[in-house]
């Protein structure tokens, strides 16, 4: 049986989510231009859902980008005690913080999931320019954080398996 290259496929997936987030940023630019131009020209009208799509772009792009930023260590962290630690201690600390971050992501994702399910069952909507089911927002948060957790865990596991002092990806 041929081995499925899970690693590269997963990396490609996370990477394409990030790219999708960047594309969404581009769409926000185009949507805003469209909105303004349509308003300035009396014959044109921008669709009502446009402002809602733009607003959803902010949390969506953030959550699409977040897992890849975890992978590339793109989320900023303080480097206050690094100098005081040996390479070994630094590695151990990094593994510990990766695990802690993974745990907290899963934890909050779980409650976002629960709240989303509840909201779905109750049929709640967020009243915007067009009404949007409220569970969308929970779903975005829940999936983004879950993927972040997987990436933090991946860092921790790779660190445990490797003997190199620190993984460097960028």
């Amino acid at each position: 049986m041929p081995r499925i290259p899970v690693g590269p496929i997963w990396t490609g997936f996370i990477r394409s989510l990030f790219a999708l987030g960047a594309v969404y940023l581009g769409l926000i630019v185009i949507g805003t231009l469209w909105d303004v131009i349509a308003r300035a020209i009396p014959q044109l009208h921008a669709p009502v859902w446009l402002s809602t799509v733009i607003e959803f772009g902010l949390p969506s792009s953030a959550m699409l980008a977040a897992p890849w930023l975890v992978r590339t260590r793109g989320h900023v962290a303080m480097e206050l005690i690094n100098a005081a630690l040996s390479a070994r201690q630094r590695k151990a600390l990094l593994a510990f913080t990766d695990l802690a971050a993974a745990g907290i992501c899963l934890f909050v994702a779980r409650y976002a999931g629960l709240a989303g399910l509840d909201s779905f069952e109750r049929g709640e909507v967020a009243v915007r320019a067009v009404d949007v089911p409220r569970w969308y927002l929970y779903a975005i948060l829940c999936s983004g954080l879950t993927l972040c957790a997987i990436e933090f865990l991946r860092h921790a596991v790779l660190a445990a398996c490797s003997t190199a002092p620190e993984e460097t990806t960028s």
């Binding site: 962290a77 303080m78 206050l80 005690i81 600390l93 510990f96 992501c105 972040c148």
Partner: peptide, 8 residues
């Protein structure tokens, strides 16, 4: 200070 990324 423990170097957990700020957001997390």
């Amino acid at each position: 200070a423990l170097r957990i990324p700020v957001a997390f």
